[in-house]
């Protein structure tokens, strides 16, 4: 298990390095940053002044190397619009996004795992079809529309939950439900498919022959063998959530990473965009590592692969 973890960690580091280079390059090839910053009507001399001010006149490799070294020490540069460092801007917004994403993932798993198991147990009955209906409904409804429905019903009509802001945990309930709801259908379908396959396995019959209670057979013997793809997909979904949902954050006026990224992109605040890209990419790398380790823990055969 240790050797497996070490190999995965090395691989993750290599991926992180590659991703940082790609993120850096993509921003450079998306247009001439100096021209964009100076404005379309700026004089050529002004553009050149800005180019040298931000070091954009030096070779790409040098720029990248310098940026990478500074990033490693935690310095992601300064925002062109906010009087703050990029690192502070991101750290400021990160807790909101992290709480939202964490709650969103928990809600998605709490809905999709039981629904998937129940649908698999009673497959091709009305129970299965009801679960499928819920899944289709979740996939078909745009998240902003679902969010607005939640606000209208629970926020305005019933007055149970605050509709915007980040003051208390209650503020996060509706956004998290809206975010988690959107991930539920595909996770549920994967759980169902995995469980249908596993429930037909010989070792499930063995577990019944041992006289084990149904919940032990389902969770310990079946679910454990069925969730590998669910774990992999859930970690990607969690990455999506962590990189911020612009729509959900906008609808609920929740100042998170997604909102910051959208702002920075529309203002060509390239140090912020670069910083967010790097942080989000690192999240994905980290989550992939975690899901690999989790799957190795669940299934011993993976550890030796």
């Amino acid at each position: 298990m240790l050797r497996f973890a070490a190999r995965r960690l090395l691989l993750a580091l290599a991926v992180a390095l590659a991703v940082s280079a790609i993120a850096f390059l993509l921003l450079r090839v998306s247009g001439d940053l100096a021209t964009t910053l100076a404005g379309e009507e700026a004089a050529p001399a002004e553009i050149e002044r800005i180019r040298s001010l931000y070091g954009l006149d030096r070779p790409l490799v040098v720029q990248y190397g310098e940026w990478l070294l500074r990033s490693l020490s935690g310095d992601l540069g300064r925002s062109l619009f906010y009087p703050e460092s990029v690192a502070n801007l991101i750290l400021d917004r990160l807790p909101n996004t992290a709480i939202l994403a964490g709650l969103g993932l928990v809600i998605a798993l709490l809905l999709s795992l039981p629904l998937g198991v129940v649908a698999a147990m009673w497959r091709n009955t009305w129970i299965d079809r009801t679960a499928l209906g819920i899944a289709v409904l979740g996939q078909a409804m745009p998240s902003f529309w679902f969010a607005l429905l939640l606000i209208f019903f629970f926020g305005l009509t019933l007055g149970w939950l605050p509709v915007s802001g980040t003051e208390s945990l209650a503020n996060f309930v509706m956004p998290a439900v809206a975010l988690g709801w959107f991930s539920t259908p595909v996770l549920m379908r994967l759980t169902r498919a995995g469980m249908v396959e596993v429930l037909g396995a010989d070792y499930i019959r063995t577990a019944h022959a041992k006289g084990l209670p149904v919940h032990v057979v389902l969770v310990k013997h079946a679910l454990r063998n069925a969730v590998a793809p669910v774990v992999a997909l859930a970690s990607v979904q969690f990455g999506n959530m962590l990189s911020g949902s612009v729509v959900i954050e906008t609808v609920f006026a929740l100042q998170g990473i997604g909102y910051l990224a959208w702002e920075a992109i529309s203002r060509k605040d390239f140090p912020v965009v670069q910083g967010i890209l790097l942080v989000v990419a690192l999240f994905y790398v980290l989550l992939t590592l975690v899901s690999d380790l989790l799957n190795a823990w669940l299934d011993p055969r993976i550890r030796e692969g």
Partner: peptide
């Protein structure tokens, strides 16, 4: 059961 290759749980 008949097949010992499949009737033991692979992850326990």
């Amino acid at each position: 059961f008949q097949d010992p290759m499949t009737c033991l749980n692979p992850s326990l």
